[in-house]
Design a binder for these strands. Sequence first.
DNA 1: CTGAAAGCGCTTACAG
DNA 2: CTGAAAGCGCTTACAG
Lengths: 347, 347
Amino acid sequence: MSSALPRRPTMRDVALAAGTSFKTVSRVVNGEPAVSGELLARIQLAIDELGYRPDDRARRLRQGGTQTGVIGFALVDVANPFFSALLRGIEEVAVKHGYLVLAGSTDANPARENQLIDAFVARRVDGFIVVSSGTENSTLRAELLRGTPVVFLDLEPELRSSDTVRSDHLGGARLATSHLISHGHRDIAFFGDDDRVFSATLRAEGYRGALRDAGVTPRPDRVVHGRHSAPEWRAIIRDHLSTGKPPTAIVTAQNFITIGAAHALRDLGVQHTVAQVGFDDIDLADVVEPGITVIAQDPPRLGRVAAERLFARIAGTAGKPRRRILTVPLIERGSGEIPPPRSRRSP
Amino acid sequence: MSSALPRRPTMRDVALAAGTSFKTVSRVVNGEPAVSGELLARIQLAIDELGYRPDDRARRLRQGGTQTGVIGFALVDVANPFFSALLRGIEEVAVKHGYLVLAGSTDANPARENQLIDAFVARRVDGFIVVSSGTENSTLRAELLRGTPVVFLDLEPELRSSDTVRSDHLGGARLATSHLISHGHRDIAFFGDDDRVFSATLRAEGYRGALRDAGVTPRPDRVVHGRHSAPEWRAIIRDHLSTGKPPTAIVTAQNFITIGAAHALRDLGVQHTVAQVGFDDIDLADVVEPGITVIAQDPPRLGRVAAERLFARIAGTAGKPRRRILTVPLIERGSGEIPPPRSRRSP
DNA sequence: CTGAAAGCGCTTACAG
DNA sequence: CTGAAAGCGCTTACAG
């Protein structure tokens, strides 16, 4: 069964077929002009007949090392549309530079992240973009110290002296919350990603800040953090909304949470009475009733900006590490403009 | 500005620091037992201090070639959740095998596809998975002839002797259409991807087959093919539904088309009167009103099956090329069960 | 215009 | 247990 793949032809094979030296073949392959017409034709023919394709790895190895024409991207979950849109943005810039991108999901698991970045380094990518808090990863830390081109995307490392591109998590959550407050709400719950994740912490901070600005004391029991699937969030939020005196509005700080909440509100039949603002835009968010008001990140743009930064770093023209924070707009669609019931309206 | 990256330490550097030969360092790096305790400790220390990381490319080059520990995946658009879910499935299997995956979007552009596969080959991936009809791509054809491990995913090449994994496009579309027929519809429109795309052709074929089975003659003016964004489809479908005597039901043969149609139906206020069945499941498809009845492919599974096939091929245990076709279930949610108006009901 | 030598970073045989 | 030689597929200097 195990039929070994025939060895790929090398320059030597081509040279043999064309009756010349492999160095001359190299000249033809690289388009160097100094080859006579007759020989050139003979070599070209041999290349075509043997199906010769130069080995990029060997070429680059000899050329002196660093450049492999590949960048890495360690993200949380490529099946999450937010991350796949980041990847698409990165890819667009990579193509322009003639680069390929290695992508891998970490599921926010530090061990898997370490392993992935190890693999990137072993394969000598020219640089990588990573969605990571960077705290627990020894390989990453070592590469940063060494000066390997690295750009942090979406999240931000504790050690600040690195290139970072992300949305204004705090400002976005503050905007979401103050939007609800401006529509009369004072009892607002917050559902966010695992609080070990930097962006989730910042978003919770923004939520609290907006409450405080409005003279409302944040209640710890109104803040729920965790890493769950949309169906899990559906159950969690349904429970929260059907226990004791429920909040009159909710902030859902991530796309899967927003989806779970959309289900939960309908499970309870309160989609027209409990207000919701979500983080991240979602397909059909403007088709459901009411439409879901969201803070809309622009993930393809985030990806492009991060990639441009990385390629500048690779080219050595990036200068000092920079932190780029993109503002996020709020899109009104209905769910965020629902007022609280009369009895619970603020003055 | 352009501060050159310090050269990575090599085995020679480590050997020099530890006062030994680089061959002995190689032994330590590869965990070969035959190194004495004292030397081993000294080398280990030097490795840590210099931050030495073996160069996988050089290692594999010397080992004899083929294996790079990387596979490629050429897909249409990673920002489309269908394809990113395929990627996630592939990735899961790749991780198990210790592989990394190079992913790239082609936008169904043959030139870009060619370029991408060229790049895969130049970097000597051990094999690749490709969403391609494979007709126009010379590099792909050459690699197939050569016996490079390749698996076709979602689409299928004209030359049949290749491994293929895809959903039952024809059966799915037939199911969608006959479902609508069983609810009384006889005038059903079909909106599908560019008809140069194999799956779109098959789905249209399934639609026609179901009509014929019911004794209905398919009308060419009820079939619209094209490669468009969701907003573009929205306009196209809105036009179709507001011209002359509109169909009483529609089949939307791809996720972006389904989203566009959901908007179009609501633009015209006919979401409760015109029936719809879509291909591909979508977030919130069960939250909109009515819920959208869909033919649900299982993209992570498609990805996993394709990847397992590829790794069997790489291992040389795959045997003859095989065509794997996964059945697709229909999920009733409301939109597909709307009856036609009395006046247009079938006997 | 063409080629023989040396070497990129590593491993595979072969000696001591 | 340790090392000197040869070579993976290619390019970079150096000769003719």
